[in-house]
Design a protein around this nucleic acid. Structure first.
Lengths: 265, 265
DNA sequence: CCGGCGTGTGAACATCCGGTGACCGCCGAG
DNA sequence: CTCGGCGGTCACCGGATGTTCACACGCCGG
């Protein structure tokens, strides 16, 4: 029953590369009703431009892409691994469909098709991404002296803003959300920047440095971002001096016996 | 890093609920060739049983499910959010397909269909699943006093880091994963370094030594890596003194939730 | 019991990696 | 049209790692 399923709590961002005006019209109307942010493109745009759109999913008619369709599809899928890609195109053979899917497309729907089915497929494709990325709506996270407020797009120490820029914030937010885990640069880059990192890019390192600088200035007694040589970074609030190892997952500690050590000092 | 990692290495685990013997036969053959662990079920099995199979993906023909198909589908998708679900069934209407996808199915393919397309779609679904929710969910492996945490790229003894470098970690991770089995240098090199070992290369030996040193320092009472002269190395936690002979090899294979026998053999 | 490999070491050497600081181009605000 | 903030690149460098060597030592077959 009309489970209108507000799964779309957060607006999806969708781009459609197609030229079938009739189809687009109906689709547009439907998308509008759903409240999805969408944009239709009559011709293939540079991959960079797509990246800039920060899309959740992309629907594309291979026919519109012309001869370099396969190449384009592959590049899009490679450079934006997190993007949901649904090919919606006319007549096709099994071989073509298999090829498209193997290149990275998430689904393939033949035309003519019902807009509702296309939407359902896009939802299905995006659904998984959501599930994992599902760390939305978190008012605030705390670690050490740090308090990260997603709603303010800012981190604070004792109420004082650390004065992070957007990227810096997104980075620390990701790290903090994965507290304790070591994140590899590629993963960080992909999740913060949205597309694949090219080998040799030092952006992550540079931003980590900027973050560390600001955090150091605002919260000198703590260390938050730890480097794992040859791997990546790990977020964990630790005092500058060895004091108080964060008792972390650790093991069954002194449990009973050991009367709690008073933090007299 | 080209670390394509074991992502592709670990076999997929797939179950197919269908009765079309002809189709199944072809599919089976193909899956066999791909090296996927698979199992076909002629009738819907309890969701619990499915859970026990630890599947990566499930292919199901709604027709086989009978009247409670929708309900079954929904339950499966709800209880196993990480499972890739591909409906592969006969004639269907747009409304049915939309319903199936909305209930949680990841893809819907009509019959008759080409096995290759079905496989490509399953791959696409699994690919997405891995990419998103994926990332390491390997809690930790333990052996002796050792605890190997993949999410930290590090091994611990009683909560204390053994302080391994990336290579060292990958090496011990591989060895531990093959606990009890003797691995030849060539294989080790191939799997850790990613390419063929040139004759005369002592890298593996050197790293084994480094590992042994660090492990010895952190966990003196145990021996983990054993040399098999003229062959290679074997991982097995054993006390330094002869104490506690490895219990019974009784073959620690009970673990595997392999409650069901997959035709992976 | 002896000599030949295959392995364990330790250290020198060659690379790779990550921390920095400087610099550049884009863009919105003034 | 400027100016300043921000995101992103570069080149340099010290240190962490990985690789290669030469040698000592132990396991094996004769």
């Amino acid at each position: 029953m009309t489970t209108e399923r507000s799964s779309s709590a957060q607006p999806l961002r969708l781009a459609v590369i197609d030229t079938d005006s009739g189809f687009l019209q109906v689709l547009d109307k439907r998308l509008e009703r759903l409240g999805w942010e969408h944009r239709t493109l009559a011709s293939p745009v540079p991959v960079d431009a797509l990246v800039a759109m920060r899309l959740s999913a992309l629907v594309v008619d291979l026919a519109v892409l012309g001869p370099s369709a396969w190449d384009y599809l592959e590049r899009v899928c490679t450079e934006m691994p997190g993007l949901g890609v649904v090919v919606c195109t006319g007549q096709s053979t099994v071989a073509q469909r298999v090829r498209g899917l193997r290149l990275g497309a998430d689904d393939w729907l033949g035309k003519p098709c019902h807009p509702e089915e296309l939407i359902a497929r896009v939802e299905a494709v995006v659904r998984r991404r959501r599930r994992s990325d599902a760390r939305e709506e978190r008012p605030a996270v705390a670690a050490g002296e740090l308090e990260i407020r997603a709603d303010r797009f800012q981190a604070f120490v004792d109420g004082v803003s650390v004065d992070l820029t957007r990227r810096e914030f997104e980075l620390i937010e990701l790290l903090a959300a994965s507290e304790g885990r070591v994140l590899e640069r590629e993963e960080i880059y992909q999740r913060v920047w949205g597309y694949a990192m090219v080998r040799g890019d030092r952006s992550v390192d540079v931003f980590v440095r900027k973050l560390r600088q600001k955090l150091e200035k605002t919260s000198p007694a703590w260390r938050y971002i730890h480097t794992h040589f040859g791997v990546g970074y790990r977020f964990a609030a630790e005092r500058a001096d060895g004091t108080e190892p964060p008792a972390d997952v650790a093991d069954a500690e002194p449990a009973a016996g050991a009367a709690v050590a008073f933090s007299s000092s």
